[in-house]
Design a protein around this nucleic acid. Structure first.
Lengths: 124, 124
DNA sequence: CCGAATCCTAAGCGATACTG
DNA sequence: CAGTATCGCTTAGGATTCGG
């Protein structure tokens, strides 16, 4: 991958695709946004995200940690507490996602309307 | 459910999540970028995207059309030709994605390095 | 409180063959 | 050329249970 493609064309797409695949799963973005403002503990995140299973929260957090987007800090208390926080990289991604968030909010209704019309025309 | 979170936090995330789920699949972004500059025909897109199966290109295009992101135009020639193009909405999304593309290009290497280190520490 | 392990279902996706 | 149909593998992800 020594390619430093100057154009935002074919090569860069693969990068976006890669990042989107990671972040485009069901929970990653929700978790990122939930943990964004301050460190959170596990069950705190679970409540805040809402609707996520333990399993998925655990694995989502693990993946995010592996990717260097969140940090995991174990507090040696009893019972043990674990604190999750966004890294600089995670915050950077979070900012970038904000643009997409705005687009989504602005256009989600349009998309849903488009779907409805499409489905009407094809009742089969 | 009586929750009407006024913050642009929780609610908007659902919208992003929704859009990301749509666009975060394996091929949508690649197809969007491939069709971006000008209308393309089916097999033209297939070649340009590269590695995509007929099945997936068909269903990806259908979903994008349903969401109002691309148009599908059948030319009544023999053999029939079908032309796909980005809508205004699609172009708008494409622009928004560019930011994410840049972030991806800038940070993909960092992420991959982070993964490598993480995996080293946990050989199991 | 935090998370691992197991089980199970639904969906994503690819390959191939067939149609108009 | 531009799809559709079918098959089967692989993965995502939810529920539940067990352990530290």
């Amino acid at each position: 991958m020594g390619r430093t493609a100057p154009l935002a064309g074919q090569n860069s797409c693969r990068a976006v695709s890669e990042v989107l695949s990671r972040v485009g799963d069901k929970w990653s973005v929700l978790v990122i946004v939930a943990v964004r403002e301050r460190p959170h503990r596990f069950n705190e995140l679970k409540r805040k995200v809402g609707g996520i299973s333990q399993q998925m929260l655990t694995s989502t957090l693990k993946t995010l940690e592996r990717d260097g987007l969140v940090t995991r800090t174990v507090m040696p208390t009893t019972p043990p507490q674990v604190s999750y926080a966004l890294t600089d990289l995670g915050r950077s991604l979070s900012s970038t996602l904000r643009q997409l968030a705005e687009w989504s909010i602005d256009n989600l209704a349009t998309i849903q309307e488009s779907r409805r019309q499409y489905d009407e025309g094809r009742p089969t």
